[in-house]
Design a protein around this nucleic acid. Structure first.
Lengths: 356, 356
DNA sequence: CTGAAAGCGCTTACAG
DNA sequence: CTGAAAGCGCTTACAG
């Protein structure tokens, strides 16, 4: 059948060698060490490669080199409570950037009760040389295990438990929130509250810190209101109700996530306030929900994060690669229309590059 | 360094053979054709495999068998206009189900101007045996090319251009919408409109057809209102405004997507109507937005779709595998609270299995 | 600068 | 039921 024909017809390095009248090693050199060949020979081999439509059999290369040039990436059913698909987008960017680094990505989905086993197995098959970790969290057993077994890896997200490990890339949430505060101040909002997660979550605490820094920079700390809520719409709405009780007209709320911001928008409507003119609202992650509801939100630079991850991964065997901390951008939409008290220009749908 | 130690220390089939006092072929047979071995031998080999923590080097196996037991899956930056991440979830389900089918998934991201080239290249490396296609659309060049080159593949989504190709799995959107209509009727809504995409899109037309069928089944066709909008919130809101002009209180709108439904909710609020009691609203795809806004929505059974895709893919070399059409479920939330006119029970957050 | 040899870790016939 | 041989398509030293 057609399938066999297509597969069997594939040219090998020997076919190219025969066609070009050289030995197979010369073809291999043309591919891997072109500078070792005489220009004429190289060109002759190149021509035959093109003519025959030859592609290196990566499988054979992997076996011989004892190296897969491939990395594993764990995927999961997105946690129910976690709105947004930041990691899905990160995966796409990682995949798009892989060829630049002569690599590819193999995805795998561990059983929840034996995550480490899945990493061990992937490694055992020889299909991957290492891993790109995402969603690292305090207590995460993966970095330690990988380190102990000498497995190359890089993390998207700080390696919380081991400050000495610097092979990570992360987004500076604090800077992102600071930026949001500064944007609100520029838009004329004068009392800026924060709705965050219960303290103890490193990411959440970092974002709250950014809010405080922003207030300090603007000299607005005297009116600081802060509330917290878990990542749940009803809880967030209640917390927002409490904030609105203490907030004067023309105030704003910066939130640790788009879902929390959605709670604020809902609460605002219940209070007869229009998000934007009456109450500034900023979310975090610039999810689909933010876009659909015209919510201003902090956006993580996922393409740059993916690029950095690959770069760090390749450097990992050499010397301790430094951490990379990227500054997010702010996508401004109608929920931060200049406050009704002022008369500034309305800035919709614009993307502001972050300048912390 | 540690890395080399970890890699070099890996046991091979020869190590196991030596430890068990058999030849390497016997170990291979223990792994691939255990029924060919004497029970005692098998057990002895098994014990050594466990003791040494041996894992087959899949790379060597791939080379020898000339088969990767891996399939390619194309990922893309999710189209800007397309809310929801159905395909991301599909990828996760596909990945989770892969081991059951002794396979794994390699992701790749083609350059938009040479999609076929990316497929050809993936195949040329020997890293994959075939592909799982998603997001098939009329005019899609991929199925034809793959078929011509005898490459095994299966599609998530009908192969619109080639009705003779049956190696696809899809979700019966028509049945899903029919179900939504039936649910609305049960909840007491008596005038049920449809907000869809401009006709010509096969998926959209199918969903509209489901609405019509639902109306007919309920004997409500005399009051049918239908409007259309592209996948854009402002457009959708305008289209919803037009619908609301003609809809009496206690009416409902079934939509071709969650984004369109969001437009209806927005328009409803502008008209002083509360989605749910005053106006039933149903979306499609059960995205994050639907969950966040308590929008009733049709949900695609992505886990079953992934399972079916693998099954079809494995059958593809045997005989023409039939198409698989799955029935979606309806996730009911507060936007289909029983209409205010009636006094039925309120059904929130329940998942109804589809019975077309 | 080019070529002959060895070998990566498996599986697939094929003898015993 | 078990074992010796050949080979998948490459790359890596190592001679010429």
């Amino acid at each position: 059948m057609a399938r066999r024909a297509a597969t069997g017809a594939r040219a090998t390095i020997v076919d190219v060698a025969r066609a070009a009248g050289v030995s197979r090693q010369t073809v291999s050199n043309a591919l891997n060490n072109p500078e070792k060949l005489a220009p004429g020979t190289l060109e002759r081999v190149q021509r035959e490669i093109d003519r025959l439509g030859f592609t290196l059999n990566v499988t054979a290369q992997q076996l011989r080199r004892r190296q897969a040039s491939a990395y594993g990436f764990e995927v999961n059913s997105s946690g129910a409570a976690r709105m947004g698909h930041v990691l899905d987008e990160f995966l796409v960017e990682l995949t798009a950037a892989a060829p630049v680094h002569d690599s590819h990505l193999v995805v795998f989905a561990p059983e929840p009760d034996d995550v480490i086993g899945a990493y061990r197995h992937m490694l055992g098959t020889g299909l991957v040389d290492g891993f790109i970790l995402a969603d690292t969290r305090p207590g995460d057993p993966r970095p330690r295990w990988l380190l102990e077994h000498g497995v190359p890896f890089v993390a998207f997200g700080r390696i919380w438990d081991s400050p000495e490990l610097t092979q990570w890339v992360d987004v500076d949430g604090r800077a992102g929130v600071r930026q949001a505060v500064s944007h609100l101040v520029d838009a004329g909002y004068r009392q800026i509250a924060f709705l965050g997660w219960p303290s103890g979550s490193a990411v959440g605490d970092d974002r709250r810190e950014g809010w405080l820094e922003g207030l300090r920079a603007a000299g607005l700390t005297d009116t600081a209101i802060v509330e917290e809520s878990v990542q749940d719409l009803d809880e967030a709405t209640s917390a927002a109700d409490r904030i609105l009780d203490g907030l004067s007209t023309g105030g704003a709320v910066v939130c640790a996530s788009d879902l929390l911001a959605l709670g604020v928008m809902r609460s605002a409507r219940n209070h007869g306030l229009e998000p934007g003119p009456d109450l500034g609202v900023v979310g975090f992650d610039d999810t689909d929900v933010a876009e659909a509801l015209q919510l201003t939100s902090v956006r993580q630079p996922l393409q740059r994060a993916a690029e950095s991850a690959w770069t760090l991964l390749k450097a990992v065997t050499e010397e301790p690669p430094g951490p990379v901390l990227l500054t997010p951008t702010l996508t401004t939409r109608s929920t931060t229309t200049p406050a009704r008290l002022t008369n500034g220009p309305r800035t919709d749908h614009t993307q502001m590059e972050g300048t912390p």
